[in-house]
Nucleic acid binder design. Structure first.
Lengths: 218, 218, 218, 218
DNA sequence: TAATAATCGAGACGGTACGTCGCGTCTTCTG
DNA sequence: CAGAAGACGCGACGTACCGTCTCGATTATTA
């Protein structure tokens, strides 16, 4: 059936099905309306902002709100979750961090990004709503892990590795292990225990405490 | 079996509705059958062990499997999630840790418990199934936090506090903050990134690394 | 199990099960409370007077209203309809007619009784309610036929037969056929077409018209 | 098949709700399948012919038998009874009578139709089943009255009126009253006392007896 | 004076059906 | 061909009654 022969790059090599089905084969006839696409996003965003819980966001309701046929949605995404994933991805802040002067500063900046996102989830009704319930949708959760969390984890590991090379971090430990020591505490507060405090300076304190250790100073 | 053996009428002022409706005021009429209760749990456990995903565990199906009327289930729990919460709670290992000799050892033991549970989720089909999808059910997730995670978090904080008093841990930091440094990395691996490795000795390594810090030794 | 060997006559030889199961064997233990029986009747009557439709008179609701256990009702009647039959029978006017002077007068009186009952159904909320919906319950309808309608039909046939013997009615026709000519029109108005008029003198007019025939008088 | 072939939007001012919901305003989206409609009727008819009592004809069972979703039935009729009404109506013989030579003959023909229908109810398992229990469903009963019985009653009244004008029937009596004298006896036997005999010639005998009167001939 | 036994209110129990909702697929007509 | 509309088979929802069955508590008769 000559799938995928369109000019579109289609990155996500394998993974979980990929967000949109692609317009199939050669594109003939009436093209898909971008306005419709936007209307669907707007509808979902609108409903979430009104505080509608994720579980009540049925395809049927989204279609009704957007003034769109159900088939039109299914033509674009295989299911509810894939739609959410795409919406979420578009809301994520662009590029998380750039390298600073010292490795310690880079780590602080990395963790600060995590903190900022945690705070954002509380200020925006939409983000709060969707993040607090995202756990409930495995595909959503997985996709979020893959596309948002994992890249930054790698970024963190690169930084740690550089720290070891530069002599700022002891190099007798596993890189991933060390990285977890840094980001674990913050992820714990933003994802697992969403009600926890995220006061300014937290990122810095975590990095410094982990670097310095917890033994009493003489 | 923690089944109604307290004469307390259960006023439960606020809270999250309380797990089961309680048999109301004075106990009149035919009493609820414990056998039925067990049959329901067995049915859920059985289905989960067969690999049926949580989302397909409809009340209807549970009732069918258990050979029980739907109303009999609704008589005991307001909904699916409350039933799962109670089931999960009953599967949780009793009391995680008791104090050892040094605070450092206690912390290791605490984290070792976390690691063991993480491993259990992988060996038991049931646990794996339900935990990997628990995220999808907010009430379940919350209840699990409240009744399982939180108590141990307090246990950890107590240990940290004791460590500060005994001079094993520097006392210029917030207790909760310190506790997060210890358990964050492990929770990260067991809950957020469920595929991560959990090799033996991990608990010990985390505690020691956090205690010693990451600065290169001269 | 020695059913029916009690000294009670138990009339209804065969028929549709008979209203109440009889207290069984020798009567020992606590006897059935008459007060309870009355409470059930009162509850049904009360609900019907409030305009509750027959279809909504569930055993469950009757028991609730009467402050009585469901089993207490089932102990007395096999089902809803049998209960209604007994209630209805108790509401029926005692003895329908007594013989007058001429056969023509007897027939008028017979039909007048039918008319009166038809009117009663309209004045009493209870009677109206139950009669207008009685059709819906085969057993109820049948029992009503057997115990109320049929006896009077026989009474009518006896009267017609007497009329033939006395020379007041032509005797070249079947008795039952003739009887139907008299009561058919009234039953039509009271049972089949419950909204029809039932003006005073109707009984007389029917009898006279049927006796005299409809051919124009010269 | 009397299916929506009128372009009228069906305002149906009052009435008994109107049989089917009507597909609403302009006709858009996929149209209702006539095949499905037939399958439902077939299922009901089939079940009835097997002797299934009306009370056991749940919507659930009909849907199951017809291989149809419940919603598909509810989309067409508000409830069980409305479905039955429409089915019954479709089974009723088309137009009962046309005028003959004398008014007496017309009346005989009218009553003969009633007799025939009474007989039909006994020969057809379906008709017997549904008619014998139709009483149990007020709406069904009412609708049957309105759409089947009443029109023929008017036909009878027209005939009586014509008889009065032509001098075949005395004109000092109310038309409706006279009509009841004719059809009352037959309706009594077919509807109220469904077990009664309906021998050939009954219609003729009723008409002649009512016309001639019951006084003995000298 | 007990023992026995059937009654009572209450409500749990396995079922069946209710009428509604959402699923994902399918048809129809309109652009 | 895309798109809005909505019908379609399906399956689950949570509720209501069905008729049966335990419960503890009365209330008679019998021993």
């Amino acid at each position: 059936m000559s799938l995928q022969d369109s000019g579109i790059p289609e990155p996500q090599g394998d993974g979980p099905a990929g967000p949109r089905p692609a317009p199939e084969a050669a594109r003939r006839g009436r093209p898909r309306s971008e306005a419709v696409e936007q209307a669907i996003f707007d509808a979902v965003a609108g409903l979430l902002e009104e505080g509608v819980p994720l579980a009540e966001l049925s395809i049927e309701r989204i279609a009704r709100t957007a003034g769109v046929g159900k088939a039109t949605i299914y033509r674009r995404w295989p299911g509810k979750e894939e739609l959410f994933v795409e919406l979420l991805r578009s809301l994520e802040p662009e590029d998380p961090v750039l390298t600073g002067t010292s490795v310690r500063d880079d780590l602080v900046m990395l963790l600060e990004t995590l903190r900022q996102r945690g705070l954002a989830k509380r200020s925006s009704a939409l983000l709060h709503n969707v993040f607090s319930q995202m756990h409930a949708y495995p595909k959503l959760w997985d996709a979020y892990q893959d596309t948002v969390i994992e890249p930054r984890r790698r970024l963190g590991m690169d930084t740690v590795r550089r720290g070891m090379e530069l002599g700022e971090i002891r190099d007798d430990l596993d890189v991933e292990f060390v990285n977890d020591l840094f980001i674990g505490p913050l992820l714990l507060r933003t994802v697992i225990r969403p009600g926890a405090t995220l006061e300014p300076g937290l990122a810095e304190r975590v990095v410094d405490a982990v670097l310095a250790g917890l033994r009493p100073r003489p």
